[in-house]
Simulated scan of single mutants.
Amino acid sequence: MRFLLNWIVTSLAVSVAAFIVPGIVPFGPMDAWICFAFTGLFLGIVNWLVKPLVTLISLPVTIMTLGIFQLVVNSFMLELAGWLSVNLLGAGIAIEGFWSAFFGGIIVSIMCSILGVVTKD
């Protein structure tokens, strides 16, 4: 049940980021909400499997930048989730460049934090 709630929250956060950031658009032959759902699913999987390893590898840079580099890691995770959803399922989000992924990652992180507090058990 918790996985389903996290998936919904992440999908909503991705849809808000796509609405706010001009370089993030739904991509694929399906409706936009399905594209956001696929990307939210892959973002949850990527954050569970890949992000801890990338965070550990980038720990020296994160310490040197006082945590600011974690924003770059978040943008990379969003870009990877969008790429995986488009290439594996045929629908997801398309991100135009680094700055779109950077600001989209910030918005997704903020929205997931806010929605996570609201939906806490």
Results as ranks from 00 to 15, higher is better:
residue 1 M to Q: 01
residue 1 M to S: 00
residue 3 F to Y: 15
residue 4 L to H: 05
residue 4 L to D: 00
residue 6 N to K: 15
residue 6 N to D: 08
residue 7 W to T: 05
residue 9 V to L: 13
residue 9 V to C: 10
residue 10 T to I: 05
residue 10 T to P: 08
residue 10 T to M: 12
residue 10 T to V: 10
residue 11 S to Q: 11
residue 13 A to W: 05
residue 14 V to I: 11
residue 15 S to F: 06
residue 16 V to S: 11
residue 16 V to T: 12
residue 17 A to P: 02
residue 19 F to S: 11
residue 19 F to G: 09
residue 19 F to C: 05
residue 20 I to E: 03
residue 22 P to E: 02
residue 23 G to W: 06
residue 23 G to K: 10
residue 25 V to F: 03
residue 26 P to H: 12
residue 26 P to L: 09
residue 27 F to P: 01
residue 27 F to E: 11
residue 27 F to L: 13
residue 28 G to Y: 13
residue 29 P to S: 15
residue 29 P to Q: 13
residue 32 A to Y: 08
residue 32 A to E: 04
residue 32 A to F: 08
residue 33 W to Y: 12
residue 33 W to P: 03
residue 34 I to Q: 10
residue 34 I to S: 09
residue 34 I to N: 01
residue 35 C to L: 03
residue 36 F to H: 13
residue 36 F to E: 09
residue 36 F to M: 10
residue 38 F to Y: 14
residue 39 T to C: 10
residue 39 T to D: 03
residue 40 G to R: 11
residue 40 G to S: 10
residue 41 L to Y: 15
residue 41 L to R: 04
residue 44 G to C: 10
residue 45 I to G: 08
residue 45 I to F: 15
residue 45 I to P: 02
residue 46 V to L: 06
residue 46 V to W: 04
residue 47 N to M: 01
residue 48 W to L: 12
residue 48 W to T: 08
residue 51 K to Q: 15
residue 52 P to C: 07
residue 52 P to L: 09
residue 52 P to T: 08
residue 53 L to K: 15
residue 53 L to T: 14
residue 53 L to I: 14
residue 53 L to N: 08
residue 54 V to F: 06
residue 54 V to W: 02
residue 54 V to A: 10
residue 57 I to W: 05
residue 58 S to T: 12
residue 59 L to I: 10
residue 59 L to H: 02
residue 60 P to T: 00
residue 60 P to E: 01
residue 60 P to Y: 07
residue 60 P to N: 01
residue 61 V to L: 13
residue 63 I to Y: 10
residue 63 I to M: 08
residue 64 M to S: 06
residue 64 M to T: 04
residue 64 M to V: 11
residue 65 T to I: 04
residue 66 L to Q: 05
residue 66 L to A: 05
residue 68 I to T: 05
residue 71 L to N: 08
residue 72 V to F: 14
residue 73 V to D: 00
residue 74 N to D: 05
residue 74 N to T: 01
residue 76 F to H: 00
residue 76 F to N: 01
residue 77 M to L: 07
residue 79 E to P: 00
residue 79 E to R: 14
residue 80 L to S: 08
residue 81 A to V: 13
residue 84 L to W: 05
residue 84 L to Q: 03
residue 84 L to K: 05
residue 84 L to I: 15
residue 84 L to R: 03
residue 85 S to A: 14
residue 85 S to Y: 11
residue 86 V to G: 03
residue 89 L to A: 14
residue 89 L to P: 00
residue 89 L to H: 03
residue 89 L to F: 12
residue 90 G to C: 04
residue 92 G to V: 10
residue 93 I to D: 04
residue 93 I to Q: 03
residue 95 I to F: 02
residue 95 I to T: 04
residue 95 I to P: 01
residue 96 E to H: 07
residue 98 F to Y: 11
residue 98 F to H: 03
residue 99 W to F: 11
residue 100 S to K: 00
residue 101 A to R: 02
residue 101 A to N: 00
residue 102 F to Y: 13
residue 103 F to Q: 03
residue 103 F to D: 00
residue 104 G to L: 06
residue 105 G to Q: 07
residue 105 G to T: 09
residue 108 V to W: 01
residue 109 S to Q: 06
residue 109 S to P: 04
residue 109 S to C: 00
residue 109 S to F: 10
residue 110 I to G: 11
residue 111 M to E: 01
residue 112 C to D: 09
residue 112 C to W: 02
residue 113 S to D: 05
residue 114 I to N: 06
residue 114 I to S: 08
residue 114 I to F: 13
residue 116 G to Y: 08
residue 117 V to Q: 12
residue 118 V to I: 15
residue 118 V to Q: 09
residue 118 V to T: 08
residue 118 V to P: 04
residue 120 K to A: 06
residue 121 D to P: 06
